[in-house]
Design a protein around this nucleic acid. Sequence first.
DNA 1: CCTTGAACCTGGGCGC
DNA 2: TGCGCCCAGGTTCAAG
Length: 296
Amino acid sequence: MPELPEVETVKRGLSAAMEGAHIKKLELRRGDLRFPFPEDFEGQVSGRTIIGLGRRAKYLLIDLDSGKTIISHLGMSGSFRIEAGSASGTPGDFHYERSKDERHDHAIFHLEGKDGPRRVIYNDPRRFGFMDIADRSELQNNPFLFALGPEPTGNELSAAYLAERFAGKAQPLKGALLDQKTIAGLGNIYVSEALWRAHLMPTRAAGTLVTKTGRPKEPLNLLVASIRDVIADAIKAGGSSLRDHIQTDGSLGYFQHAFSVYDREGHPCRTPGCGGTVSRIVQAGRSTFYCPVCQK
DNA sequence: CCTTGAACCTGGGCGC
DNA sequence: TGCGCCCAGGTTCAAG
């Protein structure tokens, strides 16, 4: 679910409910997700005020007035939702019996905002997500954030930068682009989509896009533009569905209907005049979708 | 260092 | 209806 555009959409969806709100209490329903929650996590968060939300790659950042920042990763199945009011239903309430989904509510922020009490609930069936907390001034040294490469939408990502990273690499482009140390925020969907836009085969060795002298070959310029565009388009699509549905669930919004190759095995390629059929292969244990006709 | 594969977890979909 | 199998948006660790 959550690659960079989805986390950005979640951040925007949570902003109104969380920014400026007082955290009456953080309630943890279990001791761990993928990793144990930090030492005295509830104590460090309860009683604080949220001064802002941020994002780095696929990490949601929640800034507290204590100078600490909560670092939240949604894994494969994590989501946030907002509920009005201060407590769950009462016995006799139609909604009281905990639904199947609520069994996976692991962390609940009990908030007091300008418009009254509400809860922001983190749900994660597979528990591949995790949370950490660190001093804001030390964020760049956090073990989860430390080694991350540049954001795909910023100026730091350039053909020259990728040429440097790709030089001499036999690794397929698919794997090279999934590496968060090279570009932070791309996942399985958007790597397939970006390579399709750039007409590049996912199996092609990353090093073939670099000249002997370490300069970017022409397709690398197109790849950088494709990465930027696909991420920007997805954020825009998330944003538009956000306005309609106040989407905080990390779902793909309307963009999923715009996938060109992802999950479209056997369907016609959408490159004008191509006529190819989308194929699926497995690379490093994960599905890759591409058009064998127009991707080289 | 490079690259792959298994592991972590639960749920949904499909074939039988 | 149930069972077994495969698949799923991510990351880390061990092993080749």
